[in-house]
Amino acid sequence: MDQYCDGKSKKPGTKSRRCRCSATMLTMLLFVITNSVSVLLSSGAGAFLLRRYKPDSVRLWAWDDSAALLDDLNATHRFQDDLERYMEYKPGGECPSDEALAHQLMRNGCDPLPRRRCRPPSPARYVQPAPLPKSLWTIPPDTTVVWDAYRCKNYSCLAHGGGEFDLRGREKGRWMRDDGALTYSIDGVLAARPNGTVRIGLDIGGGCGPGAARMRERGVTVVTTTSMNSGGPSGSLIASRGLVPVHVSPAHRLPFFDGTLDIVHWTPELGSRPPPVTDVSLEFAVFDIYRVMRPGGLLWLDHFVFSGEQLSATTDRVGFRRVRWNTGKKLVSALLEKPMT
């Protein structure tokens, strides 16, 4: 055991330390409690704050509409045991095979996870990836992955269902044609800007990187976000293709500077059972996308599973301008522009 979120060590004589994983959550908790006290005291209802509560739960009475926030705050207590299990390892040795536990912690809000002083296991008989551009559409050898954490034990098994791991099937034909409705082509999207001015971008929910691969063929560098390797080693496959995978959870602030990206492609239905997009989460996400895009940058919403009216109201409120807008049965595809001024 190296360290714990409660600052205690289960090894006698080990110096206690603070766990850094939940610093952000603790800051939020202190902010909410401080403001709650101020509101209650100023309203003469301070006695409510003195009510006893269970040590494994957080209770605030300042607002009636804070149920979602309370769930987030209480989650820090509920996954304490899981976090202690995650930090139970031998420093300097090999990390435990606990990827499922890591995924569970990240889903519960412990993201990013605390760093550990251990080495992840390396694949046996590792083989170098194919060179570019061949690597973009080549399934790498099975020996490039440690398969212990996955149901399938090779890429053939993963590709059998014809999903995102099948680089020779449906994935290779995506975004190559424009049907005049919900399906846009990459060439058609890039044509909305002068040649060569779309240079760097982000693919949200990009599966195993087919969109980023097609962009790479056209001289555009696109980072692909992956929520988790829950269905298979998607991050490893993306990297083997010569692309850049980045772990970003659904509630994660995008790890890019303000005003830097030329294009953002968002395909929420890709991936394994993503959480539903709500009005609030959509607004936070669209504002954050607006933040990282440069003036004149493009936001490509691809087969977006959301009400067209709600989506339109949100993107208009954030400040995007429509270049193209298509709706279908419970689906929206759109090409939006961040205004130059």
Rank of each mutant, 00 (worst) to 15 (best):
V323S: 06
L261G: 05
F256G: 03
F304S: 06
R273P: 00
G328D: 08
A239C: 00
H247R: 13
K329N: 13
L301Y: 01
L237G: 06
F287S: 14
F257Y: 05
E309M: 07
P276S: 08
V246C: 07
P276E: 12
F287D: 12
L261H: 04
R253Q: 09
F306P: 00
W325V: 07
P275R: 12
K329F: 10
G308V: 01
S240M: 13
G297I: 03
L270N: 14
F284K: 15
V318S: 04
A313T: 13
L299Y: 06
S333I: 04
R322S: 12
P274L: 09
A334N: 03
S272M: 10
T278W: 07
L254N: 07
A239H: 04
P275V: 10
R324M: 10
L336M: 14
S240F: 00
V332E: 10
R241H: 07
G296W: 07
S307I: 01
S281H: 03
D288L: 03
F256T: 05
L299F: 14
H247I: 01
P255N: 04
V332G: 12
G319W: 05
P245K: 09
V332A: 09
D262P: 05
F284Y: 14
V323A: 11
M293S: 03
T260W: 04
G296N: 07
Y290Q: 03
